[in-house]
Every structure is written in C-alpha cells, then in structure tokens.
C-alpha cells in the first residue's frame, strides 16, 4: 500500500484530498455519509468578520461539464465559526483549513487574528471570491493588492497561511510571486472562473447576481495549466483544485506541482467523491509500484 500522506507547511495530512471551501459547509452534512477522519483535510466555508447574508437566488446554474454559483459568501461570521463550528471540527481527526475573506485587508486580518488564538491548523485566505462586490477577487487580480492583503494578514497570524488565488487574471504567476514575497506559506488554486448564462426566453441572466463562478470538470485543464505555471514560479507549496472528479485527475494536478488537492463540485455529483478519489489514488500508485504519493509531486516531464 502506497503512502498517501503529505506535509504542507509542517502540517501532516494523512492523504492529499481536501473538500474545497464552499462545497462542504463545516462538514456536518457530509458526516452523515462517512467519517470525516477519512479525509486529508477540510477547507471550511469562507468566513468573514461579521455575518453575511449572501446573494439573492437563483445562486446556482448548471453548465456543460460544470456549474455556476453566486452564493456570495453567506456565513455566520468569525465569532460564530469559532464558537459553534470549529470545536466540533477539531475533534474530527483531520486537518482543518479555515477559509477566510473580507472586504478590506483589515477585515481579513481581524478574522485571521481571531483564529490565531484557536487550534485551527491552517488559514486559507480567499483573495479570489468572484461573488462579492468589495474585496474578494478585487484583492486577487492586482499584484499590489494581493501583496498588501497577504502582508497585513501575515502580521495578524502565526498559523500556516495559504492564499487562494483567482484564475481571472492575466498572469497568475505574478500574483503567486507577489503573495509569496508578502509571506504566504502556500498558495491554493484555482478559484472559480467568472462566467454567465442567459435564459434566452426571458432574456434574464440565469443567476440573480448576473454573473457567478464557474467550477466543475470544464475548468480542470485550466487548473492543471495554472498549477504547473505557478509551480515553476514559486518555492512555496501549492494546493491544487479546479474540476477534479477522479483519482487520476488528482494525480495529474500533483504531477503538475500540487502537494495536495481540493475537490469541489464533484461532491455535489457524488457526496462520496472525496473518498472514492482517495481510493483511486491509492490504486493508481499501487498499480505503478509507487511507494509514496509525495514521489509524484511536480514530476510532469514537459516537452
């Protein structure tokens, strides 16, 4: 049996598979299907300083091989997260990445500093949410802003800091280098791509927010490309994501340079997707007589 464990920023993961932020809530619903301890980690629903109500519905639209969402960071706020959700999550014997967001660098820092006093394992700073008017992707689409928000949050916490990058940029490598220089311990990518659908009968956008984030297997090749480019541009570890639906997809992202892999939309198709992906990775490695998943990280042989 191949060893699936990985280590990112000094944190041990029993396997590289992590349900992505936003698809998994705080794990409570999926715990009704299987034990959360089977997962490498959990990236929790994005948390802001204060409660946010989110966007009007419809927030969801299916697209070819994917989906659009415009949830808009609905969450109960950091105090609620720390009091109501985190204690439960920390008992689940899996790595908890608290995903945080804010409208200003100071708000992000406030959230991070509150988490600094908890036992959460890592902080994933979302500078790439396409569904909120302020902050969100605005931080993630300019090097200067990405650097500033990372640097302010860096000062607010000693927890391992993962910065989640937007693909809606001209050069993701420049942004990755900017957050690396500002003190990020790792980067995670890609967040959703901004998309839109229109109902041709009503001439109305399908989403009430008009636009939303595209995820699902449609974006997987973009994720592979961006992970590979970023892996060639920075020294810090990468958590890859974007349309992963199988163990082979996860292996592919790791060969492109990811040290761990998040799973998003696939969870909606099949709640057991993360577990199946772990098993498929195990099978792939065993069939190839590869003793540890760590051996495949960044091993793509480019032409």
């Amino acid at each position: 049996m191949a060893d699936l464990s990985v280590n990112i920023c000094g944190i041990d993961f029993k396997n590289p598979i992590i349900p992505a932020s936003g698809v998994f809530g705080y794990g409570r619903e999926y715990e009704e299907f299987y034990s959360l301890s089977e997962l490498g980690g959990i990236a929790t629903k994005g948390t802001t300083a204060k409660k946010r109500t989110g966007n009007l519905a419809p927030r969801i639209a299916e697209t070819p091989a994917g989906m659009l969402n415009s949830v808009g960071l609905q969450n109960g706020g950091i105090d609620n997260f720390i009091a109501q959700e985190l204690p439960n999550l920390l008992q689940k014997n899996t790595v908890i990445l608290a995903n945080i967001a804010g409208s200003t660098p100071e708000e992000c820092a406030e959230v991070a500093s509150k988490l600094d006093n908890t036992d959460v394992h890592m902080i994933e700073l979302n500078i790439s949410c396409p569904n909120v008017k302020q902050g969100g992707a605005a931080f993630g689409t300019s090097c200067a802003m990405a650097e500033q928000v990372t640097s302010v949050v860096r000062k607010a916490t000693s927890k391992p800091l993962v910065v989640k990058l937007s693909p809606n940029v001209t050069s993701i490598t420049e942004i990755a280098k900017a957050v690396e220089s500002a003190g990020a311990d790792a980067v995670s990518l890609i967040n959703t791509l901004l998309g839109m659908r229109i109902d041709v009968n009503t001439r109305r956008p399908v989403l009430r927010n008009n636009v939303g984030g595209l995820s699902g297997s449609a974006i997987f090749p973009i994720a592979v490309r961006m992970v590979w480019q970023v892996a060639n541009a920075v020294q810090i570890p990468i958590i890859g994501m974007g349309g992963v639906t199988s163990g082979e997809n996860a292996i592919e992202l790791m060969m492109a340079g990811a040290s761990a892999v998040q799973v998003g939309m696939a969870v909606f198709t099949d709640p057991y997707a993360p577990i199946k992906i772990i098993n498929q990775m195990q099978e792939f490695l065993d069939n190839k007589n590869i003793s540890s998943v760590r051996e495949i990280i960044g091993t793509v042989q480019p032409w």
Binding site: A57, A61, N69
Partner: peptide, 27 residues
Amino acid sequence: EERMACGVGACLGCACEIKNADGEINF
C-alpha cells in the same frame, strides 16, 4: 422550489428569504 447543488444544506445555493419571530430576515 429553488435551484440546488448539494441538496443537504452544505453549499447554501438554494437560498430563500425567511423572517424569524423577531422579524429578522435571513437566507
């Protein structure tokens, strides 16, 4: 009825504005 993704309460996709006994409105 609303467009849904997860169906179990995790993704917060199928929002519906509901007011509680105190008049507070939440999705």
